[in-house]
Amino acid sequence: MKDMVVIDGLVKRFGRKEVLHGLDLEVAAGEVVCLIGPSGSGKSTLLRCVNQLERPDGGTVRVAGEFVGMAQGRRGQLIPGRESDLCRQRTDIGMVFQSFNLFPHMTALHNVMLAPRRVRRQSEAQVVDMAQRLLAKVGLADFGDAYPVQLSGGQQQRVAIARALAMQPKVMLFDEPTSALDPELVGEVLDVIRSLAGDGMTMVVATHELAFAREVADRVVFMDGGVIVEQGPPSDVLVRPREGRTREFLSRFLGVPTGALGEPASA
């Protein structure tokens, strides 16, 4: 399968603290990769480097074959790219944030339509049907006129997913999409992500929902301390981890010995 995302030797420092130590990761087209690991392990930073919300201090990120935020100089060497190129590349990379970040001064429908209208310069009439369809897809067909403040956390996050889908991205990044939600609202958001996986969307999901990862992920990547410790099919990494750090994380996280996830979650 063709690689959609290729991360090569990614290094990121905040001040003197290095949080990603030369990380490599490939994500194939249509693949669902779940990033798990303790807080501060670099999951978020990794995702934010993919669309250059954080500028990497070393290494490269390619999405759909193109270096993100970089251009090739005359002799083939990599040089910082132009802002307009980065904007175009970012339209291929949808991102969903932990804290939703909906635009509070717009209705749900206008949140979804904003980028197609302003970035693609399409008219409202051209995009309103598509936006309605996306809201229906996330189960909020009747909420187009609601402002974010009128929606529950789960509803806001689903609007945020529809907003990211509006640019028809080639890959979707989810940065702990359910961590800010009340427990009873987590399911509705995971259902939407699950249905996207069913549609064949390429996705990288940083999550603490291990049962969800077990069920939906093609591959689970366990990160700790800015490196990938272990990766593989969920049935291996979550059920029979090879590495001690993975075992320790899983038992601490689940509060039970490893193996509890042996049975797929019935959702």
Partner: peptide, 16 residues
């Protein structure tokens, strides 16, 4: 800052 990040992630320029 989440607002500007969401806008940039959608491919908007700084001006937009």
């Amino acid at each position: 800052h989440g607002q500007s990040e969401a806008a940039l992630a959608l491919g908007m320029s700084r001006k937009q």
